[in-house]
């Protein structure tokens, strides 16, 4: 089935489809583990992040794992198109990171309690995760570019 996504074909080849299944499996396992840990912490009276940030960070950790594995295992559509997504996501992350650092510099606390991350701390962590994904994607592209000629020769 060929569908359009951001103006590009998003069909994957058979190896990529197989690996995408593995990535989803890893994402679901991490999601359940994090939810379980979060539930135990709550039961013990520990709130590790302020308000909705607990849930947002859990979701982002899972997304980061999946997108990171996508980049490393090169599960991109044959027609391209993932570059836009990674760059946009990286830029949003850089914005969040800069805003977080500026707020921290202006006196916003990183931690609001003994075990609780504040809004600024969560924002910095989320931004750093997003920027890290862009770096992984770029690193893999550079690595591929260097390997491409070697693979053809060996």
């Amino acid at each position: 089935m060929r569908r359009k996504f951001f103006g590009c074909r998003n069909d994957l080849d058979e190896r990529q489809l197989l690996q995408r299944g593995d990535v989803f499996q890893h994402g679901i396992i991490l999601f359940f583990v994090l939810l379980l840990v979060n539930a135990f912490l709550k039961e013990g009276g520990i709130t590790w992040a302020e308000g909705m940030w607990e849930n947002l960070l859990i979701i982002w950790a899972v997304i980061a794992l999946c997108l990171g594995e996508y980049a490393i295992k090169e599960i991109y559509p044959i027609g391209g198109g993932m570059t836009v997504i990674y760059v946009m996501e990286g830029l949003c992350g850089a914005f969040l990171l800069v805003v977080g650092i500026v707020e921290a510099a202006m006196g916003e606390p990183f931690f609001t309690g003994p075990h609780t991350l504040g809004r600024t701390g969560c924002q910095i962590i989320e931004g750093a995760l997003m920027v890290l994904l862009l770096l992984v994607f770029c690193g893999k592209k550079v690595y591929n570019h260097r390997k491409e000629s070697q693979d053809d020769e060996t």
């Binding site: 080849d13 058979e14 190896r15 990529q16 090169e74 991109y76 044959i78 491409e148 693979d151």
Partner: peptide, 10 residues
Amino acid sequence: VGVTRQTIVA
């Protein structure tokens, strides 16, 4: 054959 180069490499 309509696959990615990485698949042929693999």
